[in-house]
Design a protein around this nucleic acid. Structure first.
Length: 428
RNA sequence: GGACAGAUGGCAGAGCGGUUGAAUGCACCGGUCUUGAAAACCGGCAAGGGUUUAUAGCCCUUCCAGGGUUCGAAUCCCUGUCUGUCCGCCA
């Protein structure tokens, strides 16, 4: 949600910001709505003041036993006039809010211009000790080839139960998924100071609105028969923890993490990544969410990205970090880093984490505030979210990077061994 | 699912339909006292919006949400949401 006052004071900046999102000028029509609404509001308030005063007088007259009929008639006249203005005010407010709710966040100046993911800018690259992926190009296999050959990754049975874009894991690969989740959660809580939260997976409209999935992106979500939504990411429940709150400054920054399933209907993405478990209707993810004071969010963004990278480093998986360009940056973000892991089977880097600073955009929608020490006014918080990491995709990366062409098995990364009951290698 | 009870400021908790935006207590901030602190005492302390150069004044709105009754609603009525208690069902 946008700050009307900002648009009033910086209309040309606002239009420029929206232009970077590929939108035509917005400020003129927004401001004319705003102006009309304020005019109506002011007029209405004058009448309300008159009504209040006269009503008070009526009370006094009646108390002293006088005849208040004249004053009562005056109020009745005011009321008919007020009714129309109230109606108009409601209409104007609604259309103004709808307009604002549908507009994306203003991006940071650091976001490079660009049309799509091809224009994202690489920030850094990381390789484990040795400087090269352990699997050469010729020996590499895609994760589904590896998993199916091991007999522990079954798309057909999943399709029988649920249709396309589902998978069924079994045996050591199923355990590997659990091990990864456990390992990530332990790292985020014990080393990075995130508080583990177990959240609801079904949420209301307002909650989805708060983080920006609604009203525009309902198509990408699953809706239940009772009318609420399955979360597409734990960002939604975690961020909304502070919705409607005026939080105590000393509790900031707040850092939450959760391990949850994520449900995405991914409408419109048919045909993309159809093989394998790269793009599914359901997957597990460990999510990080930070809530900070405005002045701290930029630093927090770097920190959070580092927390996500730490997981890959411990797993010794090669990756790179890119800054998303203007055309690829999500609706609510001021700036986003994607972390892309090396997938030997695809001979390319693929997104495994996305870390976004949303500034006060979500906080405005959620009305999440704090009161700075010594100040009278409340301020909107800043919110950030990042994957730490997408478990399904990390599983893919482990399978492909730790694949042993000699026997078709998969080595268990060192840090996961304690979580795998001592298993060193997954074999048929 | 059935039957009750409730939802008020950061928290707790009052509130005959008419200076109640709201008593009181706690918390918090400032002051007096004190060598310092505590205690005691005094004062301040909701949010959003309009108007405005103004975070000054003035005004409007808000006591879960949305409707309604009324000249006037925190107070009365209806609907919804949430919470609690009892019963039923159940992993």
């Amino acid at each position: 949600m946008h700050d009307l006052r900002y648009i009033r004071e910086n209309p040309e900046n606002f239009d420029k910001a929206m232009a970077r999102r590929g939108l035509e000028s917005q400020s003129a029509s927004i401001l004319s709505l705003d102006e009309e609404r304020r005019a109506v509001q002011t007029k209405l308030q004058v009448l309300q003041a008159a009504r209040n005063e006269t009503s008070k007088k009526i009370g006094e007259i009646k108390k002293s036993g006088g005849d208040a009929q004249e004053a009562m008639d005056a109020v009745a006249a005011l009321k008919t006039e007020m009714g129309e203005l109230e109606e108009r005010e409601r209409e104007l407010s609604n259309s103004l809010n709808q307009r604002l709710a549908g507009l994306p966040n203003i991006m940071s100046d650091e976001v490079p211009d660009g049309a799509d993911e091809a224009d994202n800018v690489e920030v850094r690259k990381w390789m484990p000790e040795g400087g090269e992926p352990r699997i050469g190009k010729n020996a590499a296999k895609e994760h589904y080839e590896i998993g199916e050959a091991l007999g522990m990754m079954d798309f057909e049975t999943a399709a029988k139960l649920s249709g396309s874009r589902f998978v069924m894991l079994s045996g050591k690969i199923a355990r590997l998924e659990r091990a990864l989740a456990q390992f990530m959660l332990d790292t985020q809580t014990e080393e990075n100071g995130y508080t583990e939260v177990s959240t609801p997976l079904m949420v209301r409209d307002e909650t989805m609105y708060g983080t920006g999935q609604l009203p525009k992106f309902g198509e990408d979500l699953f809706k239940t028969t009772r009318g609420d939504w399955l979360i597409p990411t734990a960002e939604v429940p975690l961020t909304n923890i502070v919705a409607q709150e005026i939080v105590d400054e000393v509790t900031l920054p707040r850092r939450y993490t959760a391990f949850t399933p994520c449900f995405r209907s991914e409408a419109g993405s048919a045909g993309k990544d159809t093989r394998g478990m790269l793009r599914q209707h359901q997957f597990y993810k460990v999510e990080m969410v930070s809530v900070t004071k405005p002045e701290d969010s930029v630093a927090e963004h770097e920190r959070m990205t580092g927390c996500a990278e730490g997981i890959l480093q411990k797993l010794e998986l090669p990756y790179r970090v890119v800054t998303l360009c203007s055309g690829d940056t999500g609706f609510g973000a001021t700036k986003t880093y994607d972390i892309e892991v090396w997938l030997p089977g695809q001979d390319t880097y693929r997104e495994i984490s996305s870390c976004s600073n949303c500034g006060d955009f979500q906080a405005r929608r959620m009305n999440a505030r704090y009161k700075p020490e010594g100040e009278k006014k409340t301020q909107f918080l800043h919110t950030l979210n990042g994957s730490g990491l997408a478990v399904g995709r990390t599983l893919i990366a482990v399978l492909e990077n730790y694949y042993d062409p000699a026997d078709g098995g998969v080595f268990v990364p060192e840090v996961l061994k304690p979580y795998m009951g001592g298993v060193e290698k997954i074999v048929k």
